[in-house]
Amino acid sequence: MAHIVFDGVRKTFGEFTALDGIDLEIADGEFTVVVGPSGCGKSTLLDLLGGLARPSGGRILLNGRPVTGPGLDRGIVFQQYALLPWRTAQGNVEFGLEATGVPRRQRAARAREFLDLVGLTGFEGRHPHELSGGMRQRVAIARSLAYDPDVLLMDEPFAALDAQTRESLQDELRRIWQSTGKTIVFITHGIEEAVYLGQRVAVMTSRPGRIKEVVPVSFGDRSALLGEDLRSSPEFARYRHEVWTLLHDEVARARQQEKEAVA
């Protein structure tokens, strides 16, 4: 049985249809990236899986059970870090553990463990304003991982970062995924990011959003090809072109929809 199942999922907002007939299955431990044109419903899809919204039709199953609301089996990382400014990095990671009743001493040890996992040993006592954007996003990732969710949901988490930091965190995220074995659903509008991170890339249509095609991405031993080595490989170029070809018409259609909405 698939770990996550979208079965005919539909989402409307009044007369506006954001998603229409989403069918997608994601295996346990899989890194799936969802890519599509602006306004296609990518973030809405993630909100539904996170239990932050309810589908208007169809169903979403997690481990065979319907998703009916938020839960500790899902950790969410947003584009904006959403850190508590009055708490240190360690305090922010401990925040989610407090809600689950983890004793204070265990909270501190677990927070340090996950800050080390994301490469922030030595920064436990820093407040968010004392950290760079990339470091803040690392804290957000550590916070989501600390209470051990089954699934990590990521909504364009690196979009606001500069190119060098973004690529560094992509490498970091792949390392974390390989070491933890978490199921990850990652939303992006970047084709290169989708191909670099995902085992499978689900391409969405323009509004109303549907799954146009799912592209399996296989580079063999990725650990032997990281960073620029992988991005400059012929295989990477081939996958990037395949996803770009699928997206090209959808982006043009989305732009036409925007023009018609303004007119």
Rank of each mutant, 00 (worst) to 15 (best):
R74M: 11
H129F: 14
A142N: 10
R87E: 01
L19A: 08
L19F: 09
D150V: 00
P85F: 01
F123W: 14
G133N: 07
H189K: 11
S233F: 00
T17S: 10
V9L: 15
P216Q: 09
A82D: 02
S168H: 15
L45Y: 07
G21F: 06
A159T: 11
I191E: 06
V67H: 13
I22M: 12
T32L: 15
L161E: 14
P149V: 14
G71M: 08
L19W: 10
G64R: 02
T100L: 05
H3P: 00
A18K: 09
A140G: 13
R222E: 15
R10Q: 13
R253G: 13
Q79D: 01
R138T: 04
S56T: 10
Q199D: 13
F219P: 12
H129E: 09
P66K: 04
A261Y: 14
V201C: 09
K212L: 15
A163Y: 14
G220P: 11
A163T: 14
S179G: 00
E156P: 10
S206C: 15
D249A: 15
N92P: 02
F78P: 07
R240F: 02
A160L: 02
R231C: 04
V77M: 05
R104C: 07
G75Q: 11
T121E: 04
L62R: 07
S179R: 14
A254D: 09
R231E: 03
S223R: 09
I60P: 12
Q199I: 10
R207T: 06
G75A: 13
F158R: 05
E260C: 04
A160R: 05
G41Y: 06
V185Q: 13
E98Y: 04
R207P: 10
Y239R: 03
R210H: 03
L131Q: 10
A194W: 02
L46C: 11
I60R: 08
D229A: 15
F95A: 08
A89R: 01
G133H: 06
G29F: 02
L115G: 07
M204K: 08
K11N: 12
R110P: 01
L61M: 14
L153I: 13
I184Y: 09
V201Q: 02
I141F: 07
R112G: 04
R175S: 11
E213G: 00
R54V: 10
Y196W: 04
T32A: 15
V67A: 14
R74N: 10
P149K: 11
L24W: 10
E156R: 09
I184Q: 12
R107Q: 14
P103Q: 14
N92K: 02
R10F: 03
E130F: 00
I76H: 07
V33I: 12
L46N: 12
G58H: 07
D221F: 03
F186I: 12
T100R: 07
R54Q: 15
L46D: 12
A146L: 09
L52K: 01
E156F: 11
E30N: 01
T100W: 00
L173M: 09
T17I: 15
P216D: 06
T12W: 01
P55G: 13
L24M: 13
E213Q: 05
I60Y: 11
M1I: 05
